[in-house]
Every structure is written in C-alpha cells, then in structure tokens.
C-alpha cells in the first residue's frame, strides 16, 4: 500500500496518500467479510431450506425475534463504523492542517482551464510545477462557476468557488507527473479541464522558476507562440486541423474574412486576434457560443504578439 498502483487505487504520490489508502483497503477487506457473510447466508439458507417437490406444506417455525442475535448484529457493525469514523476523521484533520512552512501558490479555475500564479511572479496554465518533498498550499478561487481541484494520485480534492478562497495542501513525495482533473461539472469543456502536476527536485524547481518568468526570450515569436498555444490552453477549444471544437479552428484563417454572430463580417488580422484574446465577446464568429474567457491580465503583450505570429504562420 505504498506508492504502487493497485486494483482500486492509482499510485500514491503524496504524503497523505498512504494513510488514505490504508483506510480504503481496511474498508475493502471489512466489506468483503460483511458481504461474504450475507452471501453465504443467502446461499446456505437457500439450499438448505429449499422447498422440494413433494414436501408437505406444513406451517414453519414461528421465530419472531432473538434479542441476543439482534443485539450482536447491531452492536458489532456500530463499533466498526465508529472506528471508521474516527479513522477517517483523523486523516481528514491531517489533510486540513496546513504546515506552517508550506509554500503558497494561487490557483484560478475558469471555464475551462487552470491558472497557477507563483509567488515569484511566474504563471502557468494547466501545468502546476512543484518541488518534491516540500508542503505546498494552494489558495484557490474561481472566475465563473464552481470547479473542483482533484489530483487522484495525491488523494486530494477541493471545490473552487467564485468570490471566495478555498485551500488545499499536499506534499509530493518524489518527482513525476500526475493528472489534475476538474470534478465539479462546469459545462461544455468540463472533461477537457484537465492538467498535470509536475513534481521536480527542489533545486530544479528554483531554476525552473527563474526561467519561467522570462521564458521565450530565446525563441522566434512563432515558436514561442506555438508553445503558448498549448501551455495557455488555447488548444483545449481551438483545433488546428479544421475541426470545430468549442471555438473555431485556427489553421489557415489569417487574412480571410469571417462572418460574425452580430451579422457583419471581419477580416482576421492582427487586431482582430488581439481583440479576441482580450475581449473575446466583442466579435464572436457565427455559429459559436460566446463562452471564451478573457485573457486580460493572464497574457503579457509579448505573449500576445507571439500568439499572433504563430496563428499567422499557420497557413
């Protein structure tokens, strides 16, 4: 029950995972025993007291109750569940008491991606990078509806609400990558609102933080844009193969006219792309819902330039 995957549980990647799994497997085994008793009773009584053809239809035993027996099967399960309650409560407390030395990362959920703001000024989308062996506290809020932050390998989950903060903390045991899911239904892109948690050694984390704040300076704008297209989750809703996902596809559209829901048409140029990133609802392409969130405050000018250059290059 350490970190390897089992039939029921994915590998455990956090310090709390082992404790959750222990209780989980205690419940599995206790349930198997209880279920076994019920099943054995059904089969045994079913075979033993089966009415066979030719048996006389005589009155049966008038057993109305048996206080001792009934007390036994009331009290034993009660004791069991009280144990389970205290066990679950105990682990739950540990999940909720954030260590004092935890580093804090701000998490924002919105339709349909996650943004992570690190104290040093870097930000990432859909990829949370954390150091191994250090407690991390996430301060989470939503920009629109309720989302829920779930990392199965860490056995942690917490709803992310608009207009208030919720907190979750964990300590990753070793390097590796883990899935991150949204588990509170949030609409069209709910099942694509997934990301990864990348756990790196502490030293590597410090280096990563440094480069993360000025990433892309050594790349050509198109190449940098290509990366941003994935890392800022544009790719969740915009296909590059001409398919309609949530939003319109973006390959081969630059310089072409497009019809808008408001009635007019517009030529897709640098200004239109910029406007669509910062004020997505201003001119929506016909046939699509006005659901794109604004990237105001998430993307810097340099990053918008790179994205424009990248879309331009997709001819």
């Amino acid at each position: 029950m350490d970190t390897t995957a089992t039939l029921f549980l994915p590998p455990g990647g956090s310090t709390i995972a082992g404790e959750v799994d222990a209780l989980f497997y205690f419940l599995v085994y206790a349930s198997i025993v209880m279920f076994g008793i019920v099943l054995a009773g059904m089969i045994f009584f079913g075979l033993r007291y089966r009415h066979r053809q030719g048996d006389a239809a005589a009155p049966t035993a008038g057993i109305s109750h048996n206080t001792k027996l009934e007390l036994t099967w009331s009290i034993i399960p009660t004791i069991l569940v009280v144990i389970v309650f205290f066990w679950g409560f105990n682990v739950y407390l540990k999940m909720n008491v954030v260590p004092k030395d935890a580093m804090e990362i701000k998490v924002t959920g919105q339709k349909w991606f996650w943004t992570f703001d690190y104290p040093e000024g870097a930000n990432t989308v859909n990829e949370l990078v954390i150091p191994a062996g250090k407690p991390v506290k996430l301060l989470m809020s939503s920009k629109d509806v309720i989302h829920s932050f779930f990392v199965p390998d860490f056995r942690v989950k917490m709803d992310v609400l608009p207009n208030r903060y919720t907190i979750v903390w964990f300590e990753a045991k070793r390097e590796g990558t883990h899935n991150l899911f949204c588990t509170e239904f949030c609409g069209t892109g709910h099942s694509s609102m997934i990301g990864t948690v990348r756990v790196v050694p502490e030293r590597e984390y410090a280096e990563w933080l440094e480069t993360a704040s000025n990433v892309g300076s050594d790349l050509a704008p198109e190449q940098y844009g290509e990366r941003l297209f994935v890392s800022k989750a544009c790719v969740t809703c915009h296909s590059l193969e001409g398919k309609s996902v949530v939003g319109p596809p973006l390959n081969g559209v630059f310089g072409k006219p497009v019809a808008l829901t408001s009635g007019g048409t517009v030529i897709i140029d640098e200004n239109y792309i910029r406007e669509s990133i910062l004020e997505p609802q201003a001119s929506v392409v016909a046939g699509y819902q006005p659901v794109m969130p604004t990237y105001q405050g998430i993307l810097k000018d340099r990053e918008i330039d790179a994205l424009v250059a990248y879309i331009k290059s997709l001819q």
């Binding site: 709390i16 404790e19 959750v20 209780l23 989980f24 419940l27 349930s31 209880m34 279920f35 019920v38 099943l39 059904m42 079913g46 569940v81 389970v84 309650f85 066990w87 679950g88 409560f89 105990n90 682990v91 739950y92 999940m95 829920s148 779930f150 199965p152 056995r155 942690v156 989950k157 588990t183 509170e184």
Partner: peptide
C-alpha cells in the same frame, strides 16, 4: 435476493463515502 446482493454492496460502499478522508478522494468520481 438480487436486492440483498446488490443493496449490501451499495450500503457497504456508502460507508466508504461517509468516511471523511476516503470521501475526499472518491467524491464526484
């Protein structure tokens, strides 16, 4: 008899979901 078989499983898995720490992992899955 199907009821006894299935409802017992349903009830026992309810205990999983009632246990705080385990529910954190299982909730909304």
């Amino acid at each position: 008899l199907s009821f006894l078989f299935l409802f017992t499983i349903g009830g026992l898995t309810g205990i999983f979901l009632g246990a705080l720490a385990v529910d954190i992992h299982l909730h909304d899955t």
